[in-house]
C-alpha cells in the first residue's frame, strides 16, 4: 500500500533526524555564554512550539475544507492534527516552564506570548468538546470545524506577541541573526526532525481514523448479513 511505504520512509527519516538532532544538541553545539547548559532547552522549545502552531494550521485548513466540501476526509485530517496539536501544546507549556524557572526565576508569568499559548491549549480542548456537543457525527464535526476556524486567530497572536506587546519572552532572535552558526544549524536539524515526526504522527493517526471508519462500515455489513443470511 502506498501509504504504508510513505510512513516507513518517514519513520526512518524521523529516526535519523532525531538521532542527529540529539547528537548536535548534546555534543556538537557549544554551551551558551549567559545561560549555560540549560539554554539547550531552546532546541526543544522552538520545535515543540512550532508544532503546536503548525498542527493548528492544519486543523484550520481541514476545518475550512470540511465545511466547504462536506467530505469526511477533511474532518479526519483536522481531528487528527488537533490530537497531535494538543499534545505538543502541552509539551510547549511544560518545556517553557522548565526553562523559565532557572532563567527567569518563575515557573509562569502572565505575559502575552505565554498567555496566548495557554489560550491555544484551551482552544484545542474546546475543539474536542464542541464535537461531543452533537449526538450525530456530522453535526459534531461541524461544530468542531467552527472552533477550528475561529480559534485560528490565536496563532498569529502567539507568533507576533513579542513584537506587538511588551513582555518578557525573547523576540525574534532567530531571524535577526542572534544565533551563532552552529546553533542555527542545530536548530534547523531539530526543527526538521520534529516536523518529520509530526508528519509521521499525522499520517498514522489519519490511517487509524480511517480504519475505525472502515470497521464501523464492516460491522454494519456484518449485522446486515447476519439478519438476512443463514445462521
Amino acid at each position: 500500500m502506498g501509504k504504508s511505504y510513505l510512513r516507513n520512509i518517514l519513520s526512518a527519516v524521523s529516526f535519523l533526524l532525531m538521532a542527529a538532532s540529539l547528537y548536535m544538541v548534546f555534543v556538537y553545539v557549544p554551551t551558551e555564554a549567559t545561560m549555560g547548559i540549560v539554554q539547550r532547552i531552546f532546541y526543544l522549545m522552538v520545535p515543540v512550539a512550532w508544532l503546536s502552531l503548525l498542527s493548528f494550521l492544519i486543523v484550520f485548513i481541514g476545518s475550512i475544507l470540511y465545511l466547504r466540501k462536506k467530505q469526511s476526509r477533511w474532518d479526519v485530517l483536522a481531528r487528527s492534527s488537533a490530537e497531535i496539536g494538543i499534545i505538543f501544546t502541552t509539551l510547549t507549556l511544560i518545556t517553557g516552564s522548565l526553562w523559565a524557572r532557572p532563567v527567569w526565576g518563575v515557573w509562569w508569568t502572565w505575559e502575552p506570548r505565554l498567555t496566548a499559548t495557554l489560550v491555544l491549549w484551551f482552544i484545542y480542548l474546546a475543539y474536542f468538546l464542541a464535537r461531543s456537543l452533537a449526538a450525530e457525527e456530522h453535526r459534531g464535526a461541524t461544530f468542531a470545524a467552527v472552533v477550528g476556524i475561529l480559534g485560528f486567530v490565536d496563532v498569529p497572536i502567539i507568533g507576533l506577541a513579542t513584537t506587538l506587546w511588551r513582555g518578557i519572552h525573547p523576540g525574534a532572535l532567530i531571524f535577526q541573526g542572534g544565533l551563532a552558526p552552529s546553533m542555527l544549524l542545530t536548530l534547523m536539524v531539530s526543527l526538521a526532525a520534529f516536523t518529520a515526526l509530526y508528519s509521521l504522527l499525522l499520517l498514522q493517526r489519519i490511517s487509524m481514523k480511517n480504519d475505525e471508519i472502515e470497521i464501523k462500515r464492516l460491522l454494519g455489513l456484518t449485522a446486515e448479513r447476519h439478519n438476512t443470511g443463514d445462521r
Binding site: 540549560v38 539547550r40 532547552i41 526543544l44 515543540v48 522548565l98 524557572r101 532557572p102
Partner: peptide, 14 residues
C-alpha cells in the same frame, strides 16, 4: 552545571 536537572527533565519528558 546546576541547571542540568531542568535540561534533563525537559528532554526526558518530551
Amino acid at each position: 552545571m546546576e541547571n542540568a536537572g531542568y535540561l534533563l527533565a525537559a528532554f526526558t519528558l518530551v
